[in-house]
Design a protein around this nucleic acid. Sequence first.
DNA 1: CAGTATCCCTGTAGATACTG
DNA 2: CAGTATCTACAGGGATACTG
Lengths: 113, 113
Amino acid sequence: MKEEYVCNFSCPTDLKYIQDTLYVISGKWKVLIIVSLSSGHKRYREIAKSIPNITFRMLSKELKELEMNKLVTRTVHNETPVLIEYEITEYCKTLWPMLSEMISWAKHHRTVI
Amino acid sequence: MKEEYVCNFSCPTDLKYIQDTLYVISGKWKVLIIVSLSSGHKRYREIAKSIPNITFRMLSKELKELEMNKLVTRTVHNETPVLIEYEITEYCKTLWPMLSEMISWAKHHRTVI
DNA sequence: CAGTATCCCTGTAGATACTG
DNA sequence: CAGTATCTACAGGGATACTG
């Protein structure tokens, strides 16, 4: 059974996948946190300072979700005082083709709107 | 000045673009509506019926936003009784490469999570 | 049919204080 | 430093009734 996979908007499974992806990266802070980590910020307060108006509460929550999705790692270094480092994973970089498409689309969309 | 464009997470402009795109397609109903229209539903009640639990309120609101973003057209046919048809635009199809990436990513992500 | 208008509820996020 | 706990506010969305 040769099955040619033709994607179109009406495939219900695809819909589910799109929703999954949106769920992982949507929200007010997710992408901002990924950007902050990407630009080298590693420590909690450091990340917090780099993102205007984010609260500890939100930063904790979002970091946890990113960690659950394997996009971020949290490493505890047993020094005194304890040092904790957040880093984006290699896996996080698999997001890039998609983000890249999002950037292209938005760029073009600006010229349309 | 040959400028090689290297995209990376830390570019602030790219961040803005990503947020723009998310804004256009995020939300509980947007993609569902696009799917419904893609599968041939055109009339308001018809679309409403095809999407479980959506309210008229939400359908109106989302259709308006999609229209503003040129992803959907609203056509009034002057018959009696009046007939109104919603359709996705050709432009809407420019979303496809991105949606396709989102689908691929989510598919792979499932195997990771 | 194609929507609007209104009321109301709940969940999400902000503010602030506190802990190990 | 690296967070958690608690309280609160407000907006986004649901339910329902209504209009042209």
